[in-house]
């Protein structure tokens, strides 16, 4: 007799639990205001990334096309993947002494894991993270970038 009642209570509880489940999906069906989808390519204009977003490593340049990198190579040493290559050149400074400045700061985006060690360990805060995240290219060689802009020079007093 006990199992007889259990049979019916099983049916009752089963149907009840199913109805509760259906009420959840049903409720969401009738509340389109809760849709969370982002229409990505369309919302590009007002797509605001967080300020700390790690899109790519960039070298910070000011309005006069000047940066703070002196080519010390600490970022290159700190990078776990070898995605940074610093190529310095020796020039003669204004005071006549030989001085090391940066020729090319090469950054292999394809090898970067965005660990942030280069930015954190840069002694002169020359590096930062950019907001750009659309990195897809058809040619892998385009992922290799030169971070110091052409014609840029070092800000005085940073060395």
């Amino acid at each position: 007799m006990n199992s007889f009642f259990k049979y019916f209570s099983d049916i009752f509880h089963g149907v009840k639990s199913l109805l509760i489940g259906m009420s959840v999906t049903g409720r969401y069906f009738f509340s389109p205001g809760q849709i969370v989808t982002q229409q990505y390519p369309e919302n590009r204009k007002n797509l605001q990334m967080f300020e700390r977003f790690k899109g790519e490593v960039i070298m910070l340049h000011d309005g006069n096309n000047q940066h703070r990198c002196n080519g010390c190579g600490i970022c290159e040493n700190n990078c776990p993947n070898g995605s940074i290559e610093v190529i310095p050149v020796k020039v003669t400074g204004e005071d006549g002494k030989p001085k090391r400045i940066i020729d090319k700061h090469i950054y292999h985006l394809g090898m970067c894991t965005f660990c942030g060690l280069c930015v954190k360990n840069c002694p002169s805060n020359a590096l930062g993270f950019g907001q750009e995240f659309e990195h897809a290219v058809f040619d892998r060689s385009k992922l290799t970038k030169v971070l110091n802009q052409p014609g840029s020079s070092i800000i005085k007093g940073v060395e």
Partner: peptide
């Protein structure tokens, strides 16, 4: 993302502390 800069693989901890302060 707001605090660490990444959504998934944050590398946020570093020996001795965290990479940057919370947002």
């Amino acid at each position: 993302e707001e605090t660490t800069g990444s959504r998934f693989l944050q590398s946020y901890n570093c020996p001795g502390g965290v990479m940057q302060d919370i947002h």
